[in-house]
Computed example of a mutant assay.
Amino acid sequence: MAKTKAAAENESQLADPSVDRKALLSEALRRRIVSMEMAPGAVVDELALSEEFGLSRPPVRELMRQMAAEGYIELEANRAARVSSMNHQSLRNFFLAAPLIYIATTQLAAIHATHAEIDELKAIQQRFREAIEQNDVENRVLYNDQFHLQIGKMAHNPYLMPSLRRILIDHARLGKIFYRHPTTHDMEADLGKAAGQHDQIIDAIARHDAQAAGDIVRAHMDLSRRRMTEYVAPVGVEVPLAF
């Protein structure tokens, strides 16, 4: 089996004796989960990860406890660790909570953001648009995640960040599912609309218009909700009743 680019990069980094292997495992495991390389509910093999990254079991267990606290992994007594699930209840909770968190962080960003932070947000948005143009699903999901995480940082409110980070896990996974093959005109139009909403959010933040920023991000979430509804309840096939 051919190695992925990410796997080859991991091998190259692990060959460096000065590399922080635990940090490399942390980054790799997060990437594998949000990219759906590790499916929701999949077993996280502690022994295999220890061998792959050249670590003993204790630091791997410590990292898994940390990632469980962040929402990436589910830990239960007497059961193997698993990637956090995506069932009906978890998706319902996501779409109930996500607008509240996104609106709060975006409005606070409009109040507190610095010029340097806004410039960084613009740079992320440029990379997001390039990923759309290149039909690069992996980077589109990655830069969308970075866009909203950067807004969270710009809010300068540590109480909101844990909730935002948890929401972004499922936002990235949903993006990987729903926009995997944007071949239809309506899906391409939605991507263009989402990118345009990002630009509007940046503009509202730069103008320190918290109300406008909140209204735009609410519409942004409505777009995601509509796409999910179409995914789980597709239009039925028309069948002629006359024989």
Rank of each mutant, 00 (worst) to 15 (best):
L174E: 06
N10V: 07
A104M: 10
T4W: 03
V232S: 04
T229G: 13
M154A: 10
T183G: 10
L96G: 07
R32P: 00
A48H: 05
T229H: 10
D222W: 05
D209C: 02
E188V: 11
A98S: 10
H88L: 11
R227P: 00
E120N: 07
L47Y: 08
L108F: 09
E9H: 02
Q107S: 11
Y143P: 01
A81M: 12
S18P: 01
N157S: 07
L108C: 00
R30V: 07
L174C: 07
M67L: 15
M64I: 15
K22M: 09
E188R: 15
L55E: 02
H148A: 02
A77N: 08
D209Y: 02
E9A: 14
R140T: 12
Y143W: 11
V141P: 06
D209K: 04
S12Y: 12
T114Q: 12
R32F: 09
R227H: 15
I177F: 11
V19H: 07
H198I: 02
M67Y: 14
A48I: 01
T229W: 10
A8K: 13
F128L: 13
K3L: 15
P40K: 09
V60Y: 03
A109M: 06
K176D: 14
A39R: 13
D20Q: 10
R227M: 14
E238K: 10
E62H: 11
V34G: 04
Q146M: 09
A97F: 04
A23L: 07
G152A: 05
A110C: 03
F94V: 07
G71V: 01
H148Y: 12
R207L: 04
S224T: 05
F178T: 15
A195S: 12
V60K: 07
A212N: 08
Q150F: 00
V239G: 00
A113L: 03
E52D: 03
I132F: 06
L191Y: 03
A195L: 05
R21C: 05
A116E: 14
E9C: 00
V44P: 09
R65S: 13
E133P: 01
Y72R: 06
L241T: 08
A7H: 06
L174F: 09
I169Y: 01
A69F: 04
Q66K: 10
D215I: 04
A189H: 08
D170I: 09
L108E: 08
M1P: 06
A204E: 00
H171I: 01
P162K: 01
A172F: 00
A6E: 10
H115Q: 15
F128H: 05
R226K: 14
G41M: 04
D16M: 08
K5N: 03
R79N: 12
A23C: 02
F178E: 15
I216H: 02
H198E: 01
M67P: 00
R129I: 12
H171R: 12
R129W: 03
H112P: 02
D119V: 09
H88K: 12
